[in-house]
Amino acid sequence: MYEPPFWRDREANERLAATECDACGYVSFPERREVCKRCGERGEFRDTRLEERGIVQSYVIQNRLPDAFETPLPVAVMDVPQVGANDGGSDGDDAGSDAGEPARVYGLFTETDPEAMAIGMEAAAVFRELFDVEGLPVGSFKFTVPRGENR
């Protein structure tokens, strides 16, 4: 688990720690940068955290993957709201000065019926072991739609 990349990224992987650009509001996750990936400014970044939920922006169902994955596997582009945001809604530019933007990330789904997947749907982020490095687990979040629930 403490091979360097996983050690470096633990705060993001395990606690959803992110940073927000003062200049444009872009939420950088999981990387912590000095320059903003969106506006290119070398600005101030504020520490923030992401909620354990997200909104599906688009998705695919993966049928062909290496053995390390169960298939069929839904994989999505997710908007994950900041903790304390009024709304992590799908349209980004929410009103409310404290809302802030969501972070946009790839999300692997787990324990989810592929038929339940839909754009605009909310899913819960759940902590799981993703893989191991020589027997030591690397944990982070996957997404799931509770069975029988299709929002």
């Binding site: 688009s58 993966q62 290496p66 790839y106």
Partner: peptide, 28 residues
């Protein structure tokens, strides 16, 4: 290229193969 599914990545494209990357645009 199926083996390039970013197995040892956490957020950086794990499980996102070529057809997944482009398929995302199709669904949306």
């Amino acid at each position: 290229l199926i083996e390039s599914a970013a197995l040892d990545q956490v957020w950086r494209g794990r499980g996102v193969t070529m057809p997944a990357f482009f398929g995302m645009r199709a669904t949306r």
